[in-house]
Write a protein that binds this DNA or RNA. Structure first.
Length: 935
RNA sequence: GGGCCUAUAGCUCAGCAGGUUAGAGCGCACCCCUGAUAAGGGUGAGGUCGGUGGUUCGAAUCCACCUAGGCCCA
């Protein structure tokens, strides 16, 4: 007889192989069919809101593994919060304006002359194409949200928020027009934010230039001598803009004679300077302190103006001469010194990097052409001491990669240190509100705090076409700036109705109100400001544009979740604009994650070839693998990912999947309503597992609440591997397969298995969104309680099912089981047995332990998965720990008694004793009898 | 150069208000099973806790410096 047919073997439609690349899109289709996102929101419609406000990725290019991580993490949090009973609408957004897109578009246009309006049209098309692409990619990751109706910074309703915020800040006196040296890219013809600068090595000229002293102010040691200050620079082109030479007030300077010339240089650098001319034994006439040199005057190389000696703390001895050439129009520090000494700031360079007439002999030259000309001119004048080349780090444009220049340009700024209504400054208010926010991990507060504390005023203007206009008009007649309630309102209306394109296409006369005239000259003819807003301003108003203006949302957000670069970026721009506009922060808490790095901890880059493409991963292995990686990785620091790591993750996935499959397979004929066994009637080991399950829920919930997602996943994985697979499920197989289908023993096991399955799937659902759903749908329909696992609530531990004494007792037993397994293994190794069922285990134990085991004697064979266990009492002392207790046991493995039952494979002396079922053991015979047919 | 952060077995992570031979899972090696089967079970080998100093009776845990790496800035 084929006894296999009389067993209850597992049965399920849930396959062992995930085949996720094909299966996941099917599941996503199911979600669309049932309208899962809406169903979830509807189920929790009366619950408190939890708003995770999405930071808008830039609508350029495909997603990379970092963006994938970010979106998955957000989705995971939202799904968890939802299951915990919150209503969590999720509106994804995109950052659509800005230089990178405009750059891409203009590159394609080439030399063709087209209008700003046309450029904008093409930029819009370009951005929208990537919005749709990224949207699909995000959704393929299993992210759920309002992808049909995302927020886009290029929409007119969004754009108008910028105008409103700008107007409000303007009214508060926080916005000003200034002239500041800023990074300027002559190739892209635009001002660049710090974020748009890359520092790379560049070979530059390195020249030492003499500035002859014209007025020694009777300084001791210099009086009456023909001497020069010696400066060093790597940017010869900034010399026409020179107005001063800075020395350090505290450093010593030497009046040194070199090749018959008298020079002023820092004392410590005399030797170095002398070596430039191979001069030996430079003769030092005198030494003086830097502060004594202040206000002396030198001759400018080309112009009839003086270069004055000033003091500055930032002068160092690292390179050069200790005398620093100052051009306030071409450097941040120079500018500040210029302000201090009230120096003029000539700036003879135009937008395209060519010298203007102000540059005298060099007018019309590009900066690159001018460098050699300048050096040559200095040589001719006999004031070039030395020249060479030097490689140093130099700022480059992040888009075109060309070197940029420092250049004073009119720009719009947000003032951080202006008092608002005579009380506190924006910086002070921002710093205060930082303390009202919860920062995760907590140390990140230091980062944002120090950045806000030290950042300069925010330059918010850009000289580009693809963005939101700065809503300012100028009087054509007298140049007066027009920025009134009435003008702001008119511009806001224009953009609300027609989008920002209208600003570029229409003349002011067509949209300003009749009664708007220039307050100083009364004219009614205006021109528009041509600059647009920095994109960080745009994304920085998202909390207002989205949370305030969309139905069903709420300002401020509960949570922002972005990478650590956003402390300088979005976290900060949002904070400043929110504090400026609303007076308080836009978020209650901010979670920061690290950056993805490769297996060696190095940053991902195409050139290193270590980048992981998320699309490749989900097309090959499935989005759930990427999601499991996301959840398994500690986000608080760098997040490594490599093929090997994904391989390990896949193995973890398989273990979880198979555990779930076993649970499904062994509950296929179980209906909790009909077949559930009441708690007191459950077998002890089943009650034990139920208790452990409650502990797991508590542990995982606690970890999730503390955003320790990777530990939560590890706890679940450990539960699957050790508690279930290696222990409980392995022990259970015999009972599940060989007991009568409807027997209490089997139903008892199934009761726990089904409960475990439900809880496991629920807790896994935020991470393994597809697999969780696939498994959920594989549960027999009558046993399922919801259309989707994502409609389940997060499990709550049932205190009534916890039994700590039971857990301790079984832990003790498991310790002994380990010892038994060691003995079985050595018996197996010597060839004495194969399967554990071939064994009889004889355990000799001292009193207390013996009693403990004796009490469970009936169950021991099944717990150890052997055929028989015999106990012997020994003399001995009681050991203090369960480990030591287990160690002192004496365990002998013998051949099991009796014959192997062909049905249950256990050895038993009862095999062949039954009259009706003559081949099997007594236990199987009884089971077969209950089925009603004889053999 | 500055700010913040990281460094524990091949991989992912615990441990860190200082205290016995540093843990887990995976992977690996070997074995068993063939009624979870491109599964399942067992046993075992892997770490000078990045390095160097210091504080201490005692440091993976505290301090300093160094090295490597990450983000941001100069």
């Amino acid at each position: 007889m084929n006894y296999k047919d009389t067993l209850n073997l597992p049965k399920t439609s849930f396959p062992m192989k995930g085949n996720l690349a094909n299966k996941e899109p099917e599941i996503q289709k199911y979600w669309r069919e049932i309208g899962l996102y809406e169903l979830v929101l509807d189920q929790y419609r009366d619950r408190p809101l939890f708003i995770l406000h999405d930071g808008p990725p830039y609508a350029n290019g495909d997603i990379h593994v970092g963006t994938a991580f970010n979106k998955i993490l957000k989705d995971l949090i939202i799904k968890y919060k939802t299951m915990r009973g919150h209503k969590c609408p999720y509106v994804p957004g995109w950052d659509c304006h800005g230089q990178p897109i405009e750059h891409e578009v203009t590159k394609r246009i080439g030399n063709e002359k087209i209008s700003k309006a046309e450029i904008r049209r093409r930029c819009r098309d370009y951005a929208m194409r990537f919005v749709h692409r990224q949207s699909e990619q995000f959704q393929r990751l299993g992210v759920l949200g309002e992808f049909e109706n995302p927020y886009l910074t290029l929409s007119s309703e969004y754009e108008v928020t910028n105008i409103e915020v700008f107007a409000e800040l303007y009214k508060k006196g926080l916005i000003y027009r200034g002239r500041k040296p800023i990074h300027w890219c002559p190739t892209c013809v635009t001002a660049l934010a710090e974020a748009e600068i890359e520092y790379e090595d560049k070979e530059s000229d390195s020249i030492y230039v003499k500035f002859p002293i014209t007025d020694d102010l009777g300084k001791e040691g210099l009086s009456g001598k023909k001497a020069s200050f010696l400066i060093w620079t790597t940017t010869p082109w900034t010399l026409p803009a020179n107005v001063a030479i800075a020395v350090h007030p505290g450093l010593k300077y030497s009046i040194v004679e070199l090749d018959g010339e008298i020079l002023v240089v820092a004392s410590e650098l005399v030797e170095q300077v002398a070596s430039l001319r191979c001069a030996k034994n430079p003769y030092v006439h005198a030494e003086m302190i830097g502060s004594d040199l202040e206000h002396m005057k030198c001759a400018h190389p080309w112009f009839e103006r003086e270069s004055v000696i000033v003091l500055a703390d930032y002068v160092t001895l690292e390179q050069g001469t200790g005398c620093v050439h100052i051009a306030p129009g071409h450097g941040q520090e120079d500018y500040i010194t210029g302000l201090e000494y009230d120096l003029p700031s000539p700036m003879p360079v135009d937008d395209y990097g060519y010298f203007t007439d102000e540059a005298g002999p060099f007018a019309g030259m590009s900066l690159e052409e001018a460098n050699p000309a300048i050096i040559e001119s200095l040589r001719e004048k006999g004031i070039l001491l030395a020249s060479g080349k030097v490689t140093h780090t130099y700022p480059h444009c992040w888009r075109c990669k060309n070197p940029v220049v420092f250049r004073a340009t009119p720009q719009w700024f947000i003032a951080l240190d202006e008092k608002i209504d005579g009380s506190k400054t924006l910086r002070e208010l921002a710093l205060e509100s930082i303390n009202a926010v919860k920062w995760i991990p907590d140390w990140t507060v230091k980062r944002i705090e120090s950045m806000v504390r030290t950042r300069p005023d925010w330059c918010i203007s850009r000289q580009r076409a693809w963005g939101v206009p700065i809503p300012i008009l100028y009087c054509l007649q007298c140049g007066q700036t027009i920025a009134s309630d009435s003008s702001f309102k008119a511009i806001a209306n224009l953009i609300a109705e027609n989008g920002a394109d209208a600003w570029f296409e229409r003349e002011p006369e067509t949209f300003i109100p009749e009664n708007l005239t220039c307050p100083s000259c009364g004219s009614r003819r205006f021109r528009k400001e041509e600059d647009i807003l920095d994109v960080w301003f745009e994304s920085g108003v998202s909390h207002l544009a989205v949370l305030r203006k969309r139905n069903g949302l709420r300002w401020p957000a509960d949570l922002y979740v972005e990478g650590s670069d956003q402390h300088r970026g979005w976290f900060q721009s949002s904070l400043l604009l929110s504090v400026g506009y609303e007076g308080s922060p836009p978020y209650n808490s901010v979670l920061t994650h690290g950056f993805t790095v490769d297996g060696e901890g190095r940053k991902m880059s195409k050139s290193l070839g270590n980048a992981i493409d998320p699309r490749e991963v989900y097309n090959r292995s499935g989005a759930d693998i990427l999601r499991l990686w996301t959840a398994s990785t500690d986000f608080s620091t760098d997040m490594p990912i490599s093929e090997e790591i994904l391989q390990r993750i896949t193995e973890t996935y398989r273990r979880i999947r198979n555990t779930v499959r076993f649970l499904l397979g062994n509950t296929h004929d179980y209906n909790p309503a009909k077949d559930g066994v009441k708690y007191p009637e459950l077998l002890e080991i089943d009650r034990w597992m139920l208790s452990k399950l409650q502990s797991l829920i508590m542990r995982v919930t606690e970890l999730m609440e503390n955003c320790l997602f990777h530990q939560a996943i590890q706890a679940i994985h450990l539960y699957c591997t050790v508690d279930l697979s290696a222990i409980y499920l392995d022990i259970l197989k015999d009972r599940l397969y060989t007991s009568a289908r409807e027997s209490k023993e089997r139903r008892s096991a199934q009761t726990v298995l089904f409960e475990t399955l439900k809880i496991l799937l629920t807790m896994l659902a935020p991470v393994l969104v597809h697999t969780g759903e696939e498994a959920w749908l594989a549960i027999p329909e009558e046993a399922r309680t919801a259309k989707s696992v994502h409609l389940m609530e997060w499990p709550k531990p049932n205190e009534g099912l916890r039994d700590e004494d039971l857990e301790k007792k079984w832990e003790r037993l498991m310790m002994i089981r380990e010892r038994v397994y060691q003995s079985l293994e050595s018996a197996r190794y010597s060839g004495f047995i194969g399967s554990g069922l071939e064994a009889l285990v004889r355990i000799s134990a001292p009193g207390k332990t013996y009693d403990f085991l004796k009490d469970k004697a009936e169950e021991l064979p099944s717990v150890f998965i052997v055929s028989q266990v015999e106990l012997e009492k020994l003399d001995g002392v009681e050991m203090p720990t369960i480990e030591e207790e287990a160690k002192q046991l004496s365990i002998v493995v013998e051949k099991a008694r009796g014959d192997k039952c062909p049905r249950c494979w256990n050895y038993s002396t009862s095999v062949g004793k039954d009259e009706a079922f003559s081949e099997v053991c007594s236990r199987c015979a009884a089971t077969l009898k209950s089925y009603g047919s004889g053999s």
